[in-house]
Design a binder for these strands. Structure first.
Lengths: 185, 185
DNA sequence: TCGGACATGTAAATGGTTACATGATTCA
DNA sequence: TGAATCATGTAACCATTTACATGTCCGA
């Protein structure tokens, strides 16, 4: 198998927090974990169907609400999720378009390389500010602090902060390095 | 289109350095750029065929060598490559299995989270050492220094160094954060 | 002569994205 | 009533990986 279907586990994870419809899952991904995970409808709905067939989730005993189809995680689903959680992380193969392009920088006008590096710096600067805002409001939220997931959410967010800082530092350093390069064009 | 076929451009990039067979391209990827890019045969050969059909590369005028099929980049191929180089970078959607798992850390035995974080730290420590070795021998290589690609290769390598350092710092911090967490289990 | 590296390729499966189709509800 | 959002889903497409098939060459 190429890579285990992680969408499956992402969905089980969301449903382990609270019962959701496909639409809710998408909203949750966009709102809460988009900076390290995202899903799209074209994948969510088929996977939900498959999870239901595998009895890892079950649709809500249908009450009044007609349109929304709310799924609950089953005991079997919880088990499958927990089993996956403790598996070692599969490293996905590296594919950085940025580094691929940069390593062929000598085939571009130097001006273009600087533009590229500045874009990297700015994007990471924006992300850093966003993450730090999020951290601030998260740490001050007393209700959030009581959640057993709190330290894990915080840690995930801090990853973003550390990476963004590193990327900013690197982009500045690189702009410097390339400015000093005697091999001007 | 989902994502532009980046294998196509990676191959054009390698061929812009020197004519290669499919096997050579794979070797080059594994040896020189594997820490930020990789390809596999199952993808290289079909893409080579397609690139030839599009006249972006051409096979060597067949001489004695029978087995190896050496491809050259054409003028049209060089143009296509350069056009791609200056395009803005397509950000690929984030999908970090590590952060997904970590953010559900409260569903795992805490011991397992520490193991996971230690693995992250160790892996990045090993990478950092490797990258720093590479940097050292690269900077001391006088022939490499004269290559116009030198500063770009160095910059790409430095990205790896910065990221690895950030990841190490983060993993240590996270282990600390989770040790201090009163919410023991 | 045997194993390992060289070398090229195909087939199947999977994973994921985008675009499209469809229709309900809500609110200005 | 019309636009925006809610809501579910399918189809087509593309990229990528893995496994498999096939055979050569070279050196121990």
């Amino acid at each position: 198998m190429a890579t285990t279907n992680k969408t499956k586990y992402a969905i089980l994870g969301v449903l382990s927090i609270k019962p959701c419809s496909g639409y809710d899952i998408k909203k949750f991904c966009d709102k809460s974990i988009s900076y390290f995970w995202n899903e799209n409808f074209g994948h969510i709905y088929p996977v939900l169907k498959q999870l239901e067939a595998d009895k890892l989730i079950r649709p809500e005993d249908n009450t009044s609400e007609s349109r929304r189809k709310i799924y609950h995680i089953t005991e079997k689903g919880r088990q499958a999720f927990c089993e996956w959680l403790v598996q070692p992380i599969e490293l996905q193969p590296n594919r950085s378009e940025l580094l691929l392009k940069l390593s062929f920088g000598n085939y571009m006008p130097k001006e273009r390389v600087f533009t590229m590096m500045n874009e990297v710096r700015e994007r990471n600067q924006r992300n850093l500010e966003l993450y730090m805002e999020m951290e601030k409001s998260f740490v001050m939220d007393e209700k959030a602090q009581k959640d057993p997931a709190f330290p894990y959410w915080l840690a995930s967010l801090r990853y973003g902060i550390h990476s963004a800082k590193a990327a900013i530092k690197w982009s500045k350093e690189t702009i410097q390095l390339l400015s000093d390069d005697p091999n001007k064009q």
